[in-house]
């Protein structure tokens, strides 16, 4: 069944003698990642640093990260799931045909060599990026990789970790989980949290035109979302909290300039391994923090009558 077998980045720094990057380009997208956490660090268990580590890159093209790797495996676009599944079979010594392997753009020899190295590792880690989780197969690819890492624990210590995007995406995910039980794609319309990505995800709600107001903090959907979503944002009263002028702020009804978090506003940033880091502002800003603006809006709204007061307080089961 698999699951999610992971660790904090310090464990990678201290112990990982075998590192796989799959569908990601940390050399360009996470420039400090190699030096701070993975390749270059020396530790008690890996005193020679880079020399004690083996690094493999799996991607559809040879990016700058390939230079940093000992081995580069070029997988045919859209064949990640097949390749991961073949690896899962091979670690258990199950039969895989030459044709099935050939479809992935790699040879059985290369894969057998990879598995030998994986099993010989003391501590293996697989990082995966958007090149895996946002292409054909999407979450199925990520699940296959997580399962491979989990199953590798029958042979040696192995973990996996997504390379998360910029900003405090992880922090939002963590907080939504403890307050609502779900990471994203949440509707509070009925007065309690419901979850259905594809229905309640921001983009789906906007494309359907289900909202009559939008409140956006620290994100720029106007730059990335499909046109119908952007059109809807322009149509309804959209309020943006952002330190900068953005695509979204340009189409919004109200843009409240806020102090940039971590630079001029304090708080907590969650690292991609979910370790909370205190944000200590180095500068002063004439603008209020996001937190202060939200608090003041909330206080003002609280003065109005509550439309849900007459609802029951608890329901036994949800629909």
């Amino acid at each position: 069944m698999g699951g999610k077998v992971t660790c904090t980045l310090g464990e990678v720094k201290n112990r990982a003698d075998f590192i796989v990057y799959w569908g990601g380009n940390p050399a360009e997208c996470h420039p400090r990642h190699f030096t701070k956490y993975t390749l270059m660090q020396k530790s008690k268990f890996l005193p020679r640093g880079r020399k004690d580590r083996t690094v493999v890159l799996v991607d559809i093209r040879e990016t700058k990260s390939a230079k940093a790797a000992d081995h580069f495996l070029q997988v045919r676009p859209g064949k990640d799931f097949e390749l991961l599944t073949i690896l899962r079979a091979l670690i258990k010594d199950q039969k895989v045909s030459e044709e099935q392997v050939a479809e992935t753009g790699l040879s059985l020899e290369v894969l057998k060599d990879l598995i030998e190295k994986m099993k010989a590792a003391k501590f293996g880690v697989m990082f995966f990026g958007m090149g895996l989780s946002m292409t054909r197969g999407k979450h199925m690819n990520a699940a296959a990789l997580l399962t491979l890492a989990a199953e590798m624990n029958a042979f040696t210590k192995f973990v996996a970790m997504p390379m998360r995007g910029h900003g405090n995406v992880t922090g939002a995910d963590v907080i939504m989980r403890w307050q609502t039980g779900y990471p994203f794609g949440i509707s509070l319309n009925r007065g309690y949290p419901r979850y259905n990505p594809g229905e309640f995800s921001t983009v789906d709600v906007l494309v359907r035109g289900d909202t009559d107001c939008a409140f956006i903090i620290g994100a720029d959907p106007g730059a990335t979302m499909p046109k119908p979503a952007i059109d809807h944002l322009a149509k309804v009263p959209t309020i943006v909290l952002d330190p900068h002028v953005t695509h979204t702020s340009r189409l919004s009804r109200v843009h409240i300039t806020t102090a940039p978090a971590g630079i001029a506003a304090p708080g907590t940033g969650y690292r991609m391994d979910e370790v909370p880091m205190p944000l200590k502002p180095a500068l002063q800003s004439p603008y209020p923090s996001d937190e202060e603006v939200v608090r003041r809006i909330r206080e003002t709204i609280a003065l109005r009558p509550d439309w849900m007061t007459n609802q029951p307080q608890m329901i036994e089961a949800q629909i």
Partner: peptide, 17 residues
């Protein structure tokens, strides 16, 4: 979370599962 009981928010109470 889907099958368990849910707390509905009110003016003084946060929602939850």
């Amino acid at each position: 979370h889907r099958r368990t009981h849910a707390f509905i928010r009110s003016k003084t109470r946060r929602s939850g599962l």
